[in-house]
Write a protein that binds this DNA or RNA. Structure first.
Lengths: 336, 336
DNA sequence: CTGAAAGCGCTAACAA
DNA sequence: TTGTTAGCGCTTTCAG
């Protein structure tokens, strides 16, 4: 393995000079020497040992994105956002997969990141446990949460979930729907809970009485969706609108409907939350409250870098990326 | 930052002893000292600086998976396979995203991996250019291709594409179809080309004349699918079977059919290649030649580790993971 | 602009 | 079982 010393010997300069040239410390070397050094480096097939450099600099120019399993069909968009921001920022971006919640696994990951002097961490759809947060804070590695947050102390770059629930519900109300289900959300803080609040706020605003029985709890999954519409269909003939907790959930609804010859949007108007590509692939296409996942990713990287440079403090308030409604074909004005 | 020296001082032993204890070199320390050292390490909140350790060991216990953009809806399964194999192998697994082909970007990634002394690399759906292979070989980092390979010299852990084309086509033939389209494949080596060969071999075997006009070239995408069925529908009334190049492609076919009131499987039998979850989500559900992506991932890790341990040579033949046919509802016996 | 010297934090012979 | 010594490959004062 070729080292800086080998080059120094061959170029008849000191290792320090080689180091300066190779790490491009401008104004600290003479162009002629530089040229010579670079030529020899190339000739010898020199590869810098970044490990050694990092050891002395006490930092590793890597940002690690810790991301929860690929289940969620929006993580690809967040990744795209991150990647789009990755050019020329002076850091390499690497990813590690984990489960959304799994204290031991998270701990292991954090320990390897800490011991490798990672520069910064982006948690995407990962809920970090209290102990692990303590661990991370002690190590003084800057980090940011994207999409979901572990508690109310930390900021997150995500969507305003209450707003999402509110907008979705209001959209259906404005189409004339009065009995509206909310399908597949969970009751835990923070996403599910907030969406429920938004849903209730919208009903309230239009003088419609919210009724707990129209909320079908679940886990945002395809199956939650199928089960929800089954529940609605078998129990409430007057229910005509459904807010689906996620695109997968909405797809479950759509397919149950298809399989049971229930017409969408004639019998039920469905509005989904997320607005991933799935919405264009289903038939009918799904009307959605669309989150800007790409933006979350790019913003996450930008904020993290600011944090690493000490230009911003963690205690900052959460950043909400605007959502929008994309009208497609799964919703219709109520005619009955 | 607490170092091994601090612990040594406090424990009144030498740094080497601390090192031995902390890196668990059994039989090289006495349990009593070990206990003392560990206690102090804990008390001081010691975190090992892996960078320093790696510098002297000249290796970084990280396997990096270089994976092409998240577009492909099967990469999540490969990742799951990789992750399932990741426990207790003594390496951490990190991922980097890149485009399938992009020489400059690949070069940059390789350089950072080499300079960081990464232990091994898994390329998933990435085509490495000749120059970059040279670069990598010079650095002597073991690597393996999963899903696709860059040339014929290198092994790949993937599916037998010719077999896939053959099985898919034969399945339709056995249902009575005679005029069969192949939709959305590309003509490049190696996947597309091999699938075409398999397709032709099946036709041949049953005495059906292969005709180039029934192959609709594309890029495995949703759009390729829509365009393909449009092409078939407008030009060949006798064509009744379609082999779709991918699940996305098949979904494009299905949706075009739906939008144009073409009945599947009554008017066309569709068999798709991949067999991802998408096949269960579409209506009708897609019959598929299913690849075992999960297995590719786990096998990839296993093989790579063997390679890193010098137990196997790269020049090994490709490993084909068996495929199977999953019959769902997009295919039917030809009755006309 | 360049060199000498020191050291980042750890491990690995070698001796004891 | 433990300590001593040297050094991984690089960067960085400090002098010159």
């Amino acid at each position: 393995m070729v080292t800086i010393k080998d080059i120094a010997r061959e170029a008849d300069v000191s290792p320090s000079t080689v180091s300066r040239v190779l790490s491009n410390k401008k104004d600290f070397f003479n162009p002629a020497t530089a040229a010579k050094v670079r030529k020899i480096a190339k000739k010898l097939g020199y590869r810098k040992n970044t490990l050694a450099a990092n050891l002395v600099k006490k930092k590793n120019n890597i940002i690690v994105v810790v991301i929860s399993s690929v289940e969620t069909n929006f993580s690809d968009q967040i990744i795209k956002g991150i990647q789009s921001e990755a050019q020329g920022i002076g850091y390499d971006i690497m990813y590690m997969y984990t489960h959304t919640t799994n204290e031991e696994e998270h701990k292991h990951i954090l320990e390897t990141l800490i011991s490798r002097q990672i520069s910064g961490i982006l948690f995407v759809s990962v809920i970090l446990e209290k102990e692990n947060i303590t661990l991370l804070d002690a190590a003084k590695i800057p980090y940011i949460f994207v999409s979901i947050k572990p508690d109310n102390e930390h900021m997150v770059i995500g969507s305003d979930d209450q707003e999402i629930g509110y907008l979705a519900t209001k959209y259906l109300i404005n189409l004339g729907h009065k009995i509206i289900g909310l399908a597949g959300v969970d009751a835990y803080p923070y996403a599910g809970f907030s969406r429920i609040k938004g849903y209730q706020r919208a009903l309230d605003e239009f003088g419609i009485e919210a009724n707990e029985k129209y909320i079908f709890y679940g886990d945002y999954s395809y199956n939650s969706g199928s089960q929800a519409i089954k529940y609605y269909h078998e129990n409430f003939s007057s229910l005509t609108g459904i807010v689906a907790a996620s695109d997968s959930c909405a797809t479950g609804i759509l397919n149950y409907a298809y399989d049971h010859k229930i017409k969408i949007p004639e019998e039920y108007s469905i509005i989904t939350i997320d607005g991933t590509n799935l919405c264009n692939i289903t038939r009918p296409r799904l009307t959605s409250v669309t989150q800007n996942f790409r933006k979350m990713g790019s913003l996450g990287v930008r904020k993290l870098i600011k944090l690493m440079e000490g230009k911003v403090n963690t205690k900052n308030k959460s950043i909400f990326v605007p959502v929008k409604i994309d009208v497609r074909s799964s919703t219709a004005r109520l005619t009955r």
